[in-house]
Design a protein around this nucleic acid. Structure first.
Lengths: 206, 206, 206, 206
DNA sequence: GATGAATGAGAATTCATTCAT
DNA sequence: CATGAATGAATTCTCATTCAT
């Protein structure tokens, strides 16, 4: 790491790599993968073009790094809750809260990513190599899978009805993403309550 | 210059326009907005490049036209069901079926569009005028709004609990999109049942 | 081919493709492969950058096309002489003349090519795919091989001593290239005589 | 700034320079001038990038130094033979052997150089000052000139026919280079014999 | 002296759009 | 109207060189 600057409290004390990642986050989020240009990223990061390529092989890997570094703490936190020794419904709600918080911060970037890993380039014209795409997908599988595991736990305990776990986990996930994306989430706790309430007890008045 | 040609005299000129739209549908769906090239579209449409620009101002307007023409029949059908004089729960399930069917056919293109209406020039470098973006968004508002209207109807009749209608309509919508996108929908009727079942009665065993 | 211009005697009446090839010839010859820039080529060809890529896939293929189109007439002429029903020594001298004339015109470009097809990128970092490189090499093998065939003919007839044909053909070839490159060739006939004289009768005074 | 350091105090500093030169030799030989990167050279030399620029002004001067240092011992040895008091034909063959041995070792690098001294900024965009280019050329002139001097000696002694000495020396030289480059030289003595045999006695059976 | 992070001037390539025929 | 050759702005990526430590 190069800390040339004498004032480590200044904004420039972040490592160049970090500055680039943060700028990339902003630009990718705002513009999407394609419309995001390296030029815009370096302008925001206040760095030279070559510097980006010192730290990252190419635009695609910069994007991937961004996703990976952002998702890791989230996944860890989610796993802890999923594996916790608590009532299933509490765990579910806690997980929904984690999801909401994460997507509230990252919805824009994740939308971009979801778009990029789509079937595109099924015919080889893709920019994202199949192998990279699979790495992205594994990320989703892991997190949504954790939701599924807890749902299954609830079913096994006789608490929940016997529904298709994979489908339901995806449904829950998609609702979370939709709400955050639609900026319907003013307060995480309220939204988490709202979501779990519908999923657990349904719309029909008893 | 835009030659919309609302009145096709010759059968030939109409079919050209149609050929282009169909090719554009295929290419945009497969490649996304950016990676879709006019060259690929004309190759598939078996027409000249200039011809595309006779019928459409530019790539973006071609895309918009595509979306508009595809969504119109769907919206009409949806509206008929929403306004029908039937039990609310039946209407809801029928609407879910319509949605599922529509997104089963058009998920790819709609995903592209959803992605594009974010980022389409949120700032100075816009490719799309804010006004166009809003037109896309209105489309969503209309269809999701119809879901909301029927939900409200159910609430008014005392059938459904008093939830946030807009949020719930979006949630329902997002689940539909997620299921189709994840290719979890083998059979529309089954999937419609699955979705409404969860939303109406919840996961918790009574 | 597009002949927009009204004056077909003008310099611009050559097809764009031809203009580009001629400009590329000049620039590659003068600068070598790497230092030749597409920008310089289009400046000389008085054309747009995209036009180059309409006619040629990339810089490398432009270069290859150049080589191929230039060498074809030469190879044909050489073959005719090699296969002619004439005395071996006459054929040899005629072939040397053809070689000299060809390399007098094309030495610069051929030098560039010879440099490019060298072992470079034996380790995968090459710009020229092995397969392309082999196509270049086949070209050399063919023309030098024709020299060899005629030498062999001379040996078979008992006219020439039993030397290593491949080596000798390459030696003869290299001398031709060296003389033209060193601009020692004022007059093709004289130079051809000089070369064959040494190769056939040696330096030692009898 | 150029720090040539003709007087190495520390053993370490000399070895750095030497390490760089050796790495540069390997990389330039394998990749050619342009494709050789300073990064690759320092990786092989196990040194820092700045260090290269402490010893050499730039990439080009590094290349030049390489050539100069490599050619010096060869030129000295060649001169000794040329000036020796021996029969002309013996001297010629000995010189051919020296050439073959030298180019067998250095063909790759010399080819690169030969290619670069053409094109090295024949016009305004020169990377290399004309003066530098001429220094390279003088090197060739000197060694080929020594061949010429011995040939002339043979002519003066009535041993050889009165041919154009400069042309013939270049021809001899080019054959040597061609054979080594084509990897036709398995054994220096055999190849030297083969070359002189053809040049001295010709192909025609007496 | 040695180092290597930072830099930016190029270079190749893509692709929407125009316009003469 | 249909066409497609021509175009150049925009974009990614490379790599020699600098310079603060």
């Amino acid at each position: 790491m190069a800390y040339y600057r004498e004032d480590p409290q200044g904004d420039d004390s972040r490592s160049k790599r970090q500055q680039i990642l943060e700028a990339a986050y902003a630009v990718f989020s705002r513009k999407g993968y394609h419309r995001a240009t390296v030029d815009e990223i370096i302008a925001l990061a206040d760095t030279g073009k070559g510097t980006v390529y010192n730290y990252f092989n190419n635009k695609e890997q910069l994007f991937y790094t961004l996703i990976r570094e952002r998702s890791q703490p989230f996944e860890t936190a989610l796993e802890q809750v999923a594996d916790a020794d608590q009532p299933v419904l509490d765990k579910l709600q806690a997980m929904v809260r984690l999801f909401l918080r994460f997507y509230l911060d990252n919805a824009a970037l994740w939308r971009v990513m979801m778009h990029e890993i789509r079937g595109f380039g099924s015919d080889g014209l893709s920019y994202v190599k199949a192998e990279t795409r699979d790495k992205y997908r594994e990320g989703f599988s892991r997190t949504i899978g954790m939701l599924g595991r807890v749902l299954q736990e609830g079913i096994d305990q006789g608490l929940l009805r016997e529904v298709n776990v994979a489908h339901t986990a995806h449904a829950l996930f998609s609702v979370i993403v939709a709400l955050t994306f639609q900026q319907f989430v003013a307060d995480v706790d309220t939204a988490a309550h709202e979501v779990t309430d519908i999923f657990l007890y349904g719309l029909v008045r008893k």
